[in-house]
Design a protein around this nucleic acid. Structure first.
Lengths: 146, 146
DNA sequence: CCTACATCCTCCAGTGACTAGAGGATCAAG
DNA sequence: CTTGATCCTCTAGTCACTGGAGGATGTAGG
């Protein structure tokens, strides 16, 4: 759009942005995973250099870092997609964000409850093991009972 | 092997065994799942009736019930395969069985620990939500921070 | 200038433990 | 005889990646 085509500085060192490997190192997200996120639309398709390689800027570092932290907290891809969409509309009320976080927390709580009763059952099994022959194993016995 | 080919009773009601649907109802394992277990070698290939349909006996009910209970406790397929193999050798000591159960219990404990700290983080996020605009959302803020 | 070696590209296949559907054959009951 | 349930095989989809093949570049050292 500018009518001054010659005024650009001659491509400073970081102008084109970083390659996918550098982005990977900065965010601790593996290279194939970054390409996967692009494929499923979590990351925008980046510009390419003359060699066809992807070039990323700081915005990509922020967005990918956001995704990684949300994944670390166990959010699913669809949830993250929704969170990112909402963060692109800063004027909206944040009720939906709160809802997603609450739902996820509740799901985590449920999972903890399930696993706790599982752990109790497994501990009971292990404690009853007589360390004898397989024929007398209480663990197999417990699994074999209706 | 018998030299008395005519002495068999004329196929009593339960002689051929039950169909896959009946086995499914008895064990609460879905039909496609049973076929899947057969495919991956967890269940032996059953005999077929003249119509090509699978026929199961009580042994299949027991084995499949064992598998289902172990799956409910979160054991992976490979663990279950090992447990079944061991239960077929009743003379061996049951140390390996104990080891598998202990490993699994420890893995469950680890998972609980991870999820508990996750829940704490999510609860902190939810509690800090100001219920205002997306621009001020503490949840997004928390996810956006390095 | 040449040679390694790293990094990048695309495409395809595999993971775990199923689940779902197509398309067709057979069975049991009314 | 018709209807609806059940069975068969085969293929493909789920989730969130991960790994490899095979080939094209880029960068550093000699």
């Amino acid at each position: 759009m500018s009518t001054t085509p010659a005024a650009q500085p001659p491509a400073p060192r970081h102008a084109g942005g970083m390659a996918i490997g550098a982005l990977s190192r900065r965010t601790a997200v593996k290279v194939p995973t970054i390409r996967y996120y692009e494929e499923i639309g979590l990351l925008p398709t980046p510009p390419r250099g003359g060699n066809g390689r992807r070039l990323y800027g700081e915005a990509a570092v922020d967005r990918l870092g956001f995704i990684r932290r949300a994944r670390d907290l166990g959010f699913g891809i669809d949830d993250i997609r929704a969170l990112l969409d909402m963060s692109d509309r800063p004027g909206q009320p944040c009720a939906d964000i709160d809802r997603i976080a609450r739902q996820h927390r509740d799901a985590v709580r449920d999972k903890i409850r399930q696993l706790a009763s599982l752990e109790a059952a497994l501990t009971a099994m292990v404690d009853q093991c007589g360390h004898g022959a397989v024929a007398d194993c209480q663990i197999l016995e417990a699994l074999g009972r209706d």
